[in-house]
């Protein structure tokens, strides 16, 4: 039986709990629960993946159909805000609608990063409907290698 996947539990203990709840739910109700779209449960837009590297943070957002001109990316303090507007694909008039599942309209999402960042060196790129924002950590937050001197 095919498993339809809708969303991904977060890493860490809460994700583990969600995965366990999913397993029980799937066992009771079967696995075909996925609604169309990439993310549904606890729905927020745009869905994000965030990684921490030694020097900074990498944030990827799925924003299919948007161009850079439709997007605004701000970094203020330790907060990253991604906002924009997604245009409606279906013309308003003169069409017969068979199905509408894609969301449209304004969105804004703000996330707080775990530490201080250097907003002036933030870079954002857009490719294939995925926005990637690279935010370097503030100098004082970067890991520093301490040279150990041998004594005596």
């Amino acid at each position: 039986m095919a498993l339809i996947r809708g969303w991904v539990p977060a890493p860490g203990p809460f994700g583990e709990l969600q995965r366990e709840v999913n397993r029980v739910f799937d066992a009771v109700f079967g696995k075909q629960l996925g609604a169309p779209g990439r993310i549904r449960a606890g729905y927020v837009y745009p869905p994000m993946n965030i990684w921490e590297t030694g020097d900074g943070y990498v944030v990827a957002c799925e924003v299919p159909g948007l161009e850079m001109a439709d997007l605004e990316v701000y970094v203020a303090g330790d907060q990253l805000t991604v906002s924009g507007r997604r245009a409606e694909a279906v013309p308003e008039q003169g069409v017969t609608l068979h199905r509408r599942e894609r969301d449209s309209g304004h969105f804004s999402r703000a996330i707080t990063l775990p530490g201080p960042v250097d907003s002036t060196k933030t870079e954002a790129t857009l490719a294939d409907g995925v926005l990637t924002v690279r935010i370097p950590k503030a100098e004082e937050a970067k890991p520093k290698r301490i040279t150990v001197h041998l004594e005596g």
């Binding site: 095919a2 339809i4 169309p36 003169g94 069409v95 017969t96 609608l97 894609r102």
Partner: peptide, 16 residues
């Protein structure tokens, strides 16, 4: 279909 898969959100409309 694959064993496990995502279902892309889809709009379908018809013009003349």
């Amino acid at each position: 279909p694959p064993e496990s898969y995502f279902v892309p959100a889809t709009d379908i409309y018809e013009t003349e």
